[in-house]
């Protein structure tokens, strides 16, 4: 995985030199350790700023919405699925894209590491299986990567890109895991327990909308939370307002969410709002046999009618 970067840089430089694309969307070193930031590369001589390691969790599909130029994009499994969703929703044309597919073995959750070390992390390095961090106190600690992955990465069943023009490295093996244990646990609660669970879950929310901004699906020009006439949801930290916001945001992602984890990753207070989108994902799989973003040629379950669709709900 650490060797991917040479291939990424070479391919990016080649595409830019040939004029096949006008820009490359990738990652560069962030201003803090474990915080790689997205960057747009337009000149072949700049490709050396690109990096690839275990801290590239941001979903790059965000940077493709409504673009007009030809773009090469570096795509992990989840990114590729979101790109497919973008193509289906006419947010970008397939012809505009050159997708550099990257088989992914999961991205590291910086919060988990930060919680396990004392002091601030100043430097970070990694091997194929381990993460090594150095703190302000001069201590060096190592963690097995498998233990500090983002939760959605540990449950990922599409690590290889579903759509690509070139694959940077050999495909990795896919995992078979039960994706919905946490959802099932909540479903098993009584209604009162669930009310309490969600009240507690969203209590720390500060309504910064980082989850919305990080989400590749949230591209509406005016989000419903910003509408003032009518005002669907209050702007304060009232518990019901917060819950309405999270509920509707999740619902807008129904049948579209690929569980890329961008929302949870972006959340400054660490709310796992993915339990909502995962519930919708689970229902989509169970009721419509639909998983988002697997092929640009299939219409999504929620915009097609099928005689077999469940209709018990309607009297």
């Amino acid at each position: 995985m650490l060797t991917y970067i040479d291939e990424i840089r070479a391919a990016s430089a080649r595409l830019l030199q040939e004029g096949a694309v006008e820009m490359v969307v990738g990652f560069r070193q962030g201003s803090q350790p474990m915080m790689n930031e997205p960057c747009l590369i337009r000149r072949p001589e700049d490709v050396d700023t690109l990096v690839w390691d275990s801290h590239c969790g941001i979903n790059l599909t965000n940077y493709l919405t409504n673009r007009k130029e030809k773009i090469a994009v570096i795509a992990k499994g989840c990114d590729a699925r979101n790109i497919v969703t973008h193509i289906i929703e006419n947010k970008i044309e397939r012809e505009q894209l050159y997708i550099l597919g990257v088989p992914c073995q999961g991205m590291v959750d910086k919060r988990q590491i930060a919680m396990r070390v004392a002091g601030e992390i100043t430097e970070v390095g990694e091997s194929d299986t381990e993460i090594r961090v150095q703190t302000t106190r001069g201590e060096i600690q190592t963690f097995a990567k498998a233990e500090v992955l983002q939760q959605n990465c540990t449950l990922c069943t599409h690590r290889n890109p579903v759509l690509y023009d070139a694959l940077i490295a050999e495909a990795v093996s896919e995992q078979t895991v039960d994706r919905y244990t946490d959802v099932a646990a909540i479903e098993a609660m009584t209604i009162g327990e669930r009310q309490q669970y969600f009240q507690d879950l969203f209590a720390p929310c500060i309504r910064c909308y980082a989850c919305r901004n990080a989400c590749p699906l949230c591209y509406c020009p005016t989000c419903f939370v910003d509408e003032a006439q009518p005002q669907w949801v209050g702007k304060g930290q009232d518990a019901v307002d917060v819950m309405t916001f999270h509920f509707l945001r999740a619902y807008h992602c129904a049948g579209r969410c690929t569980d890329c984890g961008a929302c949870e990753r972006a959340c400054p207070v660490g709310i796992n709002m993915r339990v909502l989108t995962k519930k919708l994902e689970k229902d989509c799989v169970n009721n419509f046999g639909w998983e988002a973003g697997l092929s640009p040629d299939v219409r999504p379950a929620l915009d097609t009618f099928n005689l077999d669709d469940p209709d018990k709900l309607i009297k």
Binding site: E187, R194, F247, Y251, L276, L280, C284, P310, L313, K315
Partner: peptide, 22 residues
């Protein structure tokens, strides 16, 4: 249907939302 499932998931009783065809 997804809506009513999610409502129930979040703790709003299923029977508060009804749909019908008349």
């Amino acid at each position: 249907m997804l809506l009513s499932n999610l409502l129930e998931y979040m703790g709003i009783e299923r029977n508060r939302l009804h749909m019908s065809w008349v």
